[in-house]
């Protein structure tokens, strides 16, 4: 199982802050994961509709759409950061 974490408006749009999911072995990249997640609910679809506004961290390291998914324990999905 992989823990999915959502932050900021991604969390609000999806409606939960975390979920534990068994990722199909067919998902090989972050982009595949986002395509698959978008099918889970209208909230997921809305949150992930514009991929230019989405950032991802795999096991607490920033990733790109091309990043390979080996056997991730934790994947976080969030908007571009706005701290500082």
């Amino acid at each position: 199982m992989t823990t999915l974490l959502y932050f900021a408006w991604v969390r609000e749009t999806i409606g939960v802050d975390t979920e534990s999911l068994a990722l199909p072995a067919t998902l090989t990249t972050v982009a595949d994961l986002l395509d698959w997640l978008a099918l889970r609910s209208p909230g997921h679809a809305a949150a992930l509709a514009n991929r230019a506004r989405i950032r991802v961290a795999v096991d607490q390291a920033f990733a790109t759409p091309q990043t390979a998914l080996a056997t991730p324990r934790e994947i976080a999905i969030f908007p571009p950061v706005t701290g500082g």
């Binding site: 932050f7 900021a8 961290a57 920033f62 976080a76 969030f78 908007p79 950061v81 706005t82 701290g83 500082g84």
Partner: peptide, 14 residues
């Protein structure tokens, strides 16, 4: 440090 904190640290402002 400020430039990277703004773009590389996982904070979000509401």
């Amino acid at each position: 440090l400020m430039d990277w904190l703004k773009t590389q640290a996982p904070f979000w402002k509401r």
